[in-house]
Nucleic acid binder design. Structure first.
Lengths: 225, 225
DNA sequence: CCAGTTTTCGCCTTATAATCGAAAACATGG
DNA sequence: CCATGTTTTCGATTATAAGGCGAAAACTGG
């Protein structure tokens, strides 16, 4: 479960009270029941920690299956990535806390590797899908979105380019309204929203695209040498 | 397990002799042992069908976990994508056969969906990684590679563009040798190979890239209006 | 009304991909 | 041995997308 509440990417962890690895921080999770698939199980596990209605997106990452990943009998873990919009602050149990992914506390088992995978997945999909809808509020300014993308991607992003790329792809659309200007004044920012709140691949990274091109520009034939 | 032996994408299936779903075609697979992770298990399962040394690439796809995906007690399946180069024809058991993915026979359980996922993964990764090394022979002409890419992607690809894109990214390199001309003559084609035979992301689909740009062109300032 | 601030937008440059046609390099038949 | 057909290769051009920069726009507060 990741979110970006204030310019920093955070992950939801809970502190283990019982051995093994008592005191270490772990990802939410639990055993799979016989009558549910892994997606349903994840939502059930999450519901014990946060209000699942505030989770904007959940997707499978990978299976972690090293025989010694936990002490005792081998256990498989199907890791998931969950995203919470930046403007909601779900209530969490007392043993549970948000941690910046760049400053992780001692983590249990292979959970640090899972967090790393989740962050990488988020970074990748922000580029070629509309996944931003899951980390952004319902409405936002381009500047606010820039902060979110910068934090998630780990490098600076310019407002100009962010707006141009996302609008060109049709994932961003203006609401028509404008936000209040900041305390220091300045031009009021236009509010935007994501056109679609379900995951959509904007550019199927098809670098070798189908020839479907109807470019009708008359080409001036080159004179033969 | 996919391959493209002659311009058509094929998947390795075996025909079930015992119920459930006797007669239907299924993907290779089997139970996970306690002392192996899923990757090791897949290689072990595959070894029962083909010579695993001929498998150029294996990667995890996803967990399929619907409670009713197989009759009887629920079973989880961690699906994998495997790729065999086009020039090898592994010996397979008598109940096993290659089928074109566009003309699948009746398949068992949810295996048709798994094949679909595998094909989609292959298509995507051909665009932004050097995964072509896993479907191509060690050496090949651009024309031969074009046939492979066209079959995998499902649409025509031009030799010119294929060569330029792959060489620009540094995934393709000439061997220096040339192939024999075809029976109808024609210029002998240069042979190429993949520079790296391990999966490498050539372009991290980073559409919003870090500003690391040292463009040093002096810009002529626009006159104010 | 003016200075300060932030957003927005147009213009330009750069990067990469797609298209097209001609030249190169071979085989074969007259 | 030359003309012809065939296939590959390559250069020139166009097309599309992304990044950079600065001016104009639109507000606040004195």
């Amino acid at each position: 479960m990741l979110r970006i509440p204030a310019g920093a990417l955070q992950v939801l962890l809970w502190q283990r009270a019982q051995p093994p690895q008592a005191g270490d921080w772990a990802l939410p999770g639990g055993a799979l029941r016989g009558d549910e698939d892994v997606e349903a199980s994840v939502r059930r596990q999450l519901a014990e920690k946060v209000d699942v209605r505030e989770v904007a997106h959940v997707e499978q990452l990978a299976v972690f299956s090293a025989p010694d990943r936990v002490p005792g009998p081998r256990r498989l873990a199907t890791a998931f990535l969950g995203l919470v919009p930046a403007d909601v602050d779900p209530a969490v149990p007392p043993d549970t806390r948000w941690h910046e992914v760049t400053k992780l506390p001692p983590t249990a088992f292979d959970h640090a590797a899972i967090v790393c995978r989740a962050r990488d997945r988020l970074r990748a999909k922000l580029s070629y899908t509309n996944l931003g809808f899951a980390i952004a509020p319902a409405e936002f300014t381009v500047s606010a979105l820039r902060v979110l993308y910068s934090a998630a991607l780990g490098h600076q992003v310019t407002s100009t380019n962010l707006q141009r790329v996302l609008t060109r792809r049709g994932v961003l659309e203006p609401t028509g309204a404008t936000a209040m200007p900041g305390p220091a004044g300045g031009r009021p920012a236009a509010l935007f929203r994501f056109a679609d709140r379900r995951l959509r691949v904007t550019d199927p990274f098809a670098v070798l695209r189908p020839p479907a091109r109807s470019s009708s520009h008359a080409r001036r034939p080159r004179p033969p040498r």
